[in-house]
């Protein structure tokens, strides 16, 4: 019997410590309300979260792993974006 597939949703939880929503896993549900409930029931059983997002997995647009070089390597050489690039005499104190 070929049963209709129940859609997959990606689950994001904002934890108690005020961080951004973080991807925690997936659930299957027929619609958005059920996905939200399933996400709550599956991923917050130990008081992990204060807010839940669900997104249909098919709606996630991901970068292509083959573009990794083009996308992420050019920033590697821009060391002047990091505070350690600049030398400040110790006497000045923390900056």
């Amino acid at each position: 019997m070929a049963e209709k597939k129940i859609p997959l949703w990606e689950v994001f939880i904002r934890s108690r410590n005020g961080m951004s929503h973080r991807h925690v896993g997936s659930v299957h549900a027929a619609d958005a309300e059920m996905a939200l409930q399933a996400a709550r029931d599956v991923y917050t059983r130990r008081g992990e979260g204060l807010s839940v997002w669900v997104v249909p997995s098919t709606e996630i647009i991901a970068s292509d792993p083959d573009d990794k070089g083009m996308l992420f390597e050019p920033t590697g050489s821009k060391i002047y974006r990091h505070p350690t690039f600049y030398e400040i005499p110790e006497e000045v104190g923390n900056m």
């Binding site: 299957h28 549900a29 599956v42």
Partner: peptide
């Protein structure tokens, strides 16, 4: 009926 619901009912 499905895994998600198994967990929900147990909650």
């Amino acid at each position: 009926p499905m895994l998600e619901e198994d967990i929900a009912l147990a909650n």
